[in-house]
Amino acid sequence: MSPRKRLLIVYHTQSGNTGSLAEAVLRGAARVDETDTRLMRAFDAGTDELLACDGLLLGTPENFGTMSGALKDFFDRTYYPCEGRLVGLPYAIFVSAGNDGTGAVREIGRIANGYGWKSVAEALIARKAVTTGHLRAAEELGEAMASGLAMGIF
Rank of each mutant, 00 (worst) to 15 (best):
Ser68Arg: 06
Tyr91Gln: 05
Ala45Ser: 11
Thr60Cys: 14
Tyr80Trp: 10
Ser96Met: 09
Arg110Gln: 11
Cys82Ser: 14
Ile93Asp: 00
Leu50Ile: 05
Lys118His: 00
Gly114Gln: 12
Tyr115Ala: 02
Phe64Asp: 12
Leu39Lys: 10
Asp48Thr: 13
Arg106Trp: 12
Gly46Arg: 06
Gly84Trp: 09
Gly28Glu: 07
Arg38Asp: 14
Met40Ile: 09
Leu51His: 00
Thr78Asp: 04
Gly84Thr: 06
Gly114Lys: 12
Leu50Phe: 10
Leu26Ile: 07
Ala121Leu: 00
Arg106Cys: 10
Ala42Asp: 14
Glu107Ile: 11
Thr35Gly: 08
Asn113Glu: 15
Leu57Tyr: 03
Gly103Val: 08
Asp76Gln: 06
Ala123Gly: 06
Phe43Ala: 15
Arg27Gln: 13
Ile111Val: 12
Asn63Leu: 14
Val87Gly: 05
Ser68Thr: 15
Ile93His: 05
Gly55Phe: 02
Leu39His: 07
Gly114Asp: 13
Ser119Cys: 00
Glu34Arg: 14
Tyr79Glu: 02
Ser119His: 01
Ser96Ile: 08
Leu86Val: 01
Glu107Trp: 06
Ala97Arg: 07
Arg85Phe: 01
Asp76Lys: 04
Tyr80Asp: 14
Ile108Val: 14
Val87Glu: 11
Leu71Phe: 11
Lys72Asn: 13
Cys82Arg: 03
Thr102Ser: 12
Thr37Phe: 07
Asp48Asn: 14
Trp117Ala: 00
Val25Tyr: 01
Lys72His: 08
Leu26Met: 09
Phe64Ala: 15
Thr66Gly: 09
Ala29Met: 05
Lys72Thr: 08
Gly84Gln: 09
Pro90Met: 02
Leu86Tyr: 03
Glu83His: 02
Cys53Pro: 10
Val105Arg: 05
Gly109Asp: 03
Gly101Ala: 10
Pro61Ala: 14
Glu83Gly: 02
Val32Pro: 01
Glu122Phe: 01
Pro81Cys: 07
Asp36Ala: 13
Asn63Pro: 10
Ala92Thr: 05
Thr37Cys: 13
Leu50His: 02
Gly98Ala: 12
Phe43Cys: 14
Leu57Cys: 06
Leu26Pro: 04
Leu56Ser: 07
Ala29Asn: 09
Ile93Lys: 07
Ala45Thr: 07
Asn63Thr: 15
Thr35Glu: 11
Thr78Ile: 06
Met40Asn: 10
Met67Asp: 11
Gly116Glu: 02
Glu34Met: 15
Asp33Gln: 14
Asn63Ser: 09
Cys82Ile: 02
Met40Trp: 10
Ile108Gly: 04
Gly46Asn: 01
Cys82Pro: 06
Asp76Ile: 04
Ala30Asp: 13
Ala123His: 04
Leu57Glu: 01
Leu89Ile: 00
Cys53Tyr: 05
Pro90Val: 00
Gly98Asn: 08
Glu83Ser: 09
Arg77Asp: 06
Gly103Asn: 01
Glu49Leu: 05
Ala45His: 12
Leu56Thr: 05
Val32Ile: 10
Arg110Asn: 15
Thr102Gly: 15
Gly55Thr: 01
Ala104Val: 07
Arg77Ile: 03
Gly46Asp: 02
Ala30Trp: 11
Asn99Gly: 14
Tyr79Met: 08
Thr102Phe: 15
Asn99Ser: 15
Ala97Trp: 05
Glu49Gly: 09
Tyr80Cys: 13
Pro61Lys: 09
Leu57Met: 03
Cys82Tyr: 02
Gly109Cys: 06
Asp73Gln: 07
Gly28Arg: 09
Asp44Leu: 05
